[in-house]
Design a protein around this nucleic acid. Structure first.
Lengths: 202, 202
DNA sequence: GAAGTTCTAGTGACCGTTCGGAAAAGATAG
DNA sequence: CTATCTTTTCCGAACGGTCACTAGAACTTC
């Protein structure tokens, strides 16, 4: 825990550099694994020396925490906003959320891979409660939309619990195979997934 | 590489103990992570001392390899057999494979979690070519069944590539949430997934 | 000169692996 | 059944290396 800059202008620069470090860490961790990536590797990637890194981050675990925290927070915000948008039907809301969601996991696929890789840490340690809660709530929003979509007749499925888990599985899996210049873009993916749920209506 | 027993009776016992070690490793690695699990942890779990472990396994990496190898091999055999079963329609074949597949990932969920966790090792190192090939071929079998199922009218989907990836995602995700005494059993899961693909026919 | 940033040079702990030999189990012979 | 030899199993102690993290000095910026 290095002493933070007090003057606002310097504080801004400090925050920017810190974010650069976190982003670089997310990419490395996602590509090579959290434990398999040393602070020395991160040092090479950022240009800072190993000691210098600790000016911006307290520990390697804090890096992991920042990465995962930056993942769930904005996604949950989006989900809440879309779910509360009364100008759309439930089906349209689910479709919109699916688009945002897929775009999100693709944009932050490196972080998503870290998130999945270090699941055992996130599940167990008490420090991660807030992140687990955010994930739970996101699932609840999804579940509600599924239920409302069935009530409105836009969706048809038999088992809501299984369908929710299927949806979570297919979207969370995207970072494992997505390639930036591959044949499938975010919109095609979200559309294909959507049609698996809503095909009865087309 | 310790010298193996030559007498068949002893060899059998040796193999059995080795499998016990591998199974214990799969459970520990799956629960706590491969890198985060030390040989000392595995020693506690097996009752052997750390040095004694190396009588049954050459290295920690070999453990990882054995775990993943035992995963893909039997699954691919099942898939090939089902795909070649002419007594079933394409849709029935896909349904049967889905049942086997879900049962398989649940029975070996610990190994599955390791497999996902150490993806970066499996993708890159040349030693793992065989396992990557097996996975590719499994996907090809699935893809064929999807295509045949559409041709026979039992399935209806728009984008086969996306549908295949959705299927892979939802099944591979099961080990992350499945609980042995939870509300959802293998059959319900396979059935729910199947209906997402085949709902048009019901 | 004060505040902030980065570097150099450790330090202690842990971890995978090795190795020699003890202990145990099995085979052989009397 | 006992004694001896061989094979197999397991242990305990250590080694070399890596890694996260730290302390303090040097440098840069204002």
């Amino acid at each position: 825990m290095p002493s933070l800059p007090t003057k606002p202008a310097l504080r801004e620069r400090y925050d920017r550099r810190q974010e650069e470090v976190v982003d670089a860490a997310a990419e490395l961790f996602g590509a090579n694994g959290f434990q398999a990536t040393s602070m020395a590797d991160l040092s090479s990637a950022t240009g800072l020396t190993v000691g210098g890194l600790y000016h911006y981050v307290g520990s390697k675990d804090e890096l992991l925490f920042r990465i995962c925290h930056g993942l769930m927070e904005p996604l949950l915000d989006h989900a809440r906003a879309i779910a509360a948008d009364g100008s759309l039907t439930p089906g349209e809301r689910l479709r919109a959320l699916l688009g945002e969601w897929v775009g999100h996991v693709i944009a932050r696929r490196h972080s998503m891979l870290v998130f999945g890789q270090e699941r055992h840490v996130i599940e167990r340690e008490p420090r991660w409660r807030e992140i687990r809660r955010a994930r739970k709530e996101f699932e609840r929003v999804l579940d509600d939309l599924l239920e409302q979509g069935r009530a409105s007749g836009e969706l048809s499925y038999d088992d809501r619990a299984v369908t929710l888990l299927a949806l979570l599985g297919m979207v969370n899996h995207v970072p494992q195979w997505y390639r930036p210049r591959g044949p499938l873009g975010p919109d095609e993916i979200a559309d294909g997934y959507w049609r698996l749920l809503a095909r009865a209506g087309s």
